[in-house]
Every structure is written in structure tokens, then in C-alpha cells.
Computed example of a mutant assay.
Amino acid sequence: MATDMLFAPNGLAYRLDGPYDGDWIVLFNSSGTDHRMRDDVVPYLTQAGYRVRRYDMCGQGLTALAVSCIPMGDLTHDIGDRLEHLGIGRAHCLVCHLAG
């Protein structure tokens, strides 16, 4: 069901929760926060049968601000690459404002 933090090849830290066969939801946190921003909602989503992916953007939480991190403008490409890396063909996205 839940995992510890995992690390993508480019260094982004992410976490997976919920049943392995559930529909996917990707949770985006705002800048200045990390994946824990959504801690309160994850139990409801997993109980409803969703598989949840959340991550720490570059310089947030467990993801270091490093050369391997991508610019904010390329964030959508990175998310697509990560979904593909995990074998996720389709996902719901829950987004909040990233600019503060």
C-alpha cells in the first residue's frame, strides 16, 4: 500500500500510496512545500481505491536543489517522463497554484 520515499533517476523524491491496481492520481504541491502538504487527503483517496503519487519538487523536501533538477518550465515533461517510467498510461491530476 504505502511506500517510503523513492528517488527517480534525476533525483526527484516521490512517494506512492494506495492499492497497486487502483486508478492513478498525481498530487502536485505548491512551491515552498513538500509531498506532506497532501497528508490529510491521501487516506481518503486510498480508501476510495486510488493509487496516489506525490513528490517533492527540486529544492523542496527530500529533493535537493541540484544540477540534475529540471527548470520549472519543464515540469510537465518531467511528470510525463515519471509516469511513463512507472508504467502509468493515464492519471488524474490534483494541482494547486505553484507560484505562491
Rank of each mutant, 00 (worst) to 15 (best):
L6Q: 15
L6H: 07
F7K: 15
A8D: 11
P9T: 14
P9F: 09
P9G: 13
N10V: 04
G11V: 00
G11Y: 00
G11F: 00
L12Y: 04
L12M: 12
A13E: 07
A13M: 11
Y14V: 03
Y14P: 03
Y14Q: 04
R15C: 10
R15F: 07
R15V: 14
R15E: 12
L16T: 13
D17C: 13
D17N: 14
G18T: 02
G18S: 05
G18Q: 03
P19M: 06
P19Y: 00
G22Y: 07
D23L: 14
D23K: 14
D23S: 14
I25V: 14
I25C: 10
V26I: 11
V26P: 05
V26Y: 05
L27S: 10
L27M: 06
L27V: 07
F28Q: 15
F28P: 00
N29R: 07
S30K: 13
S31G: 12
G32I: 11
G32Y: 09
T33D: 12
T33H: 04
T33M: 13
T33Q: 13
T33F: 07
D34T: 07
D34H: 09
H35S: 06
R36A: 14
M37C: 11
M37N: 13
D39Q: 11
D39Y: 03
D39N: 13
D39T: 03
D40L: 13
D40Y: 09
D40G: 14
V42P: 00
V42W: 07
P43H: 11
P43R: 09
P43G: 08
Y44I: 01
Y44C: 06
L45S: 03
Q47W: 10
Q47K: 12
A48V: 03
A48Y: 10
Y50G: 11
R51E: 00
R51I: 02
R51T: 12
R51S: 05
R51A: 05
R51H: 10
V52Y: 00
R53T: 06
R53D: 01
R53E: 01
R54C: 05
R54F: 00
D56A: 01
M57P: 01
M57V: 04
M57C: 05
M57R: 03
C58M: 07
C58Y: 01
C58E: 12
G59D: 04
Q60L: 11
Q60S: 08
L62G: 01
L62H: 03
L62N: 03
T63S: 11
T63G: 03
L65V: 03
A66G: 05
V67R: 09
V67M: 13
V67K: 09
S68Q: 12
C69N: 01
C69D: 04
C69H: 02
I70Y: 02
P71T: 10
G73C: 02
G73F: 01
D74E: 13
D74Y: 00
D74S: 12
L75H: 06
T76D: 15
H77I: 14
H77V: 15
H77M: 10
H77C: 08
D78E: 11
I79N: 05
I79D: 06
